[in-house]
Design a protein around this nucleic acid. Sequence first.
DNA 1: TGTACATCAGTGAACGCGCGTTCACTGATGTAC
DNA 2: TGTACATCAGTGAACGCGCGTTCACTGATGTAC
Lengths: 191, 191
Amino acid sequence: MRYQPQHKTEVHRKIVQDASRRVRGEGLSGAAVAAVMRDTGLTHGGFYKHFGSKDDLLRESLHEAFREIGDTLAGAAEQAQPGTAWKAIVKTYLSPEYCEHVERGCPLTALAPELARAPETIRSQVLAELVSYKDRMVAFMPGRRRADKERAFFAIFSTMVGAVEIARILPEPAMREKVLGSARDLLLHSF
Amino acid sequence: MRYQPQHKTEVHRKIVQDASRRVRGEGLSGAAVAAVMRDTGLTHGGFYKHFGSKDDLLRESLHEAFREIGDTLAGAAEQAQPGTAWKAIVKTYLSPEYCEHVERGCPLTALAPELARAPETIRSQVLAELVSYKDRMVAFMPGRRRADKERAFFAIFSTMVGAVEIARILPEPAMREKVLGSARDLLLHSF
DNA sequence: TGTACATCAGTGAACGCGCGTTCACTGATGTAC
DNA sequence: TGTACATCAGTGAACGCGCGTTCACTGATGTAC
């Protein structure tokens, strides 16, 4: 064979990684096959040696995006003092740095309305990702019973998603911080 | 002239109305010139008798969308008991009916991430619309001083926007209601 | 050890499609004489 | 009052462009003999 055995796997991984950034940074239609392959250093013709269709790439990209942000937030939560894990998540998610880096952030803030409108093949994947994201985060949420933690997850993530989205529409850092800070205050004083 | 004097104005209004629904229902790229003109009962060729460019249509559609939801929420707020205006807004925004009708809802829930990524010509318009939407809603927000009401606006709308977006990803009404209800509980117990 | 062939990731031209935009044309009505 | 012309919203073919997808080809390496 022309390439090392692990070569194809690595290229595949890199394409998904690049697409996952592009999708979050520029929207579901931002990860054009030719653009993503160019990012990876290849030409568009080779794409179908790695994926059955553009849809497959989108699904894998979304999985990768949820995995990446899940790791980031779980990492922040695990380093926090006992009982404050959810606060660490809120502070990470609502930080100016996080807000500025759409392409490495949560696919919900980057894509939620587009995901809700996506064709069924994508939507079912998104639903599964959202459920496993929730199950992973619920462990860090405030509340005694599982049901309380789930409600906290939905309330906290709703506020964070909306706040980052609104902040990203605003051009000035000071205005952005006002939105992020208002959401942070609401959440940190409510649970 | 072939048409009544007010004819052109009415057709223009109808195109904007149709585009405003399409943009919210199917995204910024959902209001294709040919599709919108078909909605209005015309063919695509006549479009440029009414608009200088697709961008002009998008800007007018967004203005119309913010106007429509602003009227709806202000109407709900004005009918409420004194001091509970903001609660009426929260209940309206987080109702299942509102959640189901993307195309008549708030452009923030339908489009926020796309608006943040839009080209500067659209973004500056969006910023102006967001500011005037905020100024209109701030009057109904809880809090004593103007600054408190602004912070309440950002916190409340962040939560509402995120909750409706997440709910819309979920297929089952019961799951949607769980998200909307969690956000409603958070907000109604926090101000 | 040397030669012929198989394998397969990657190339780049080509396709059909939907899009925004342009443009010569239509045809009903208003206006000039 | 009747005729020729001007106006202008609307039509539909055509354009260039970016997109997802296909496909004949390349060329380095592994394998069979």
